[in-house]
Amino acid sequence: MTSQSQGIQQLLQAEKRAAERVSEARKRKARRLKQAKEEAQVEIEQYRIEREREFQTQQRTALGTQGDLSSEIETRTRQTLQMVQNSHGKNKEVVLRRLLSLVCDVKAELHANYRFTNY
Rank of each mutant, 00 (worst) to 15 (best):
L99F: 01
T2F: 05
S3E: 15
L81S: 08
A112C: 06
R28G: 03
F116S: 09
R78S: 10
R32Y: 04
Q41T: 05
N91C: 00
G64A: 00
Y119K: 11
Q10M: 06
V95K: 05
G7A: 15
R26Y: 06
M83Y: 09
H88F: 12
A19W: 01
E39I: 04
E72F: 03
N118Q: 14
I49Y: 03
Q41G: 01
H111K: 13
V106P: 00
V42K: 13
V22D: 13
R98A: 12
R98C: 01
I8A: 10
D68N: 06
K34G: 06
I73H: 06
V42E: 13
N91R: 02
A40Q: 09
F55Y: 11
S23N: 11
S5Y: 04
Q46R: 14
N113F: 01
K37I: 04
M83P: 00
L63D: 07
V22T: 10
N118G: 06
L11C: 03
S101C: 03
T57E: 14
A30N: 05
M1F: 04
L12K: 12
S87F: 08
R26G: 10
R17S: 11
K37E: 14
G67F: 01
E15H: 08
L11Y: 01
R31P: 00
R17E: 14
V84T: 06
V103Q: 15
T80F: 05
Y114F: 14
Q6V: 05
K92C: 05
Q4S: 08
S87Q: 06
E93H: 03
Q82C: 01
Q66M: 09
V94T: 12
N118L: 12
G89R: 08
L12V: 07
F116Q: 11
E39L: 10
M83T: 14
K27A: 14
T61C: 03
R21Y: 02
V22E: 15
S5E: 14
S3D: 15
Q6Y: 09
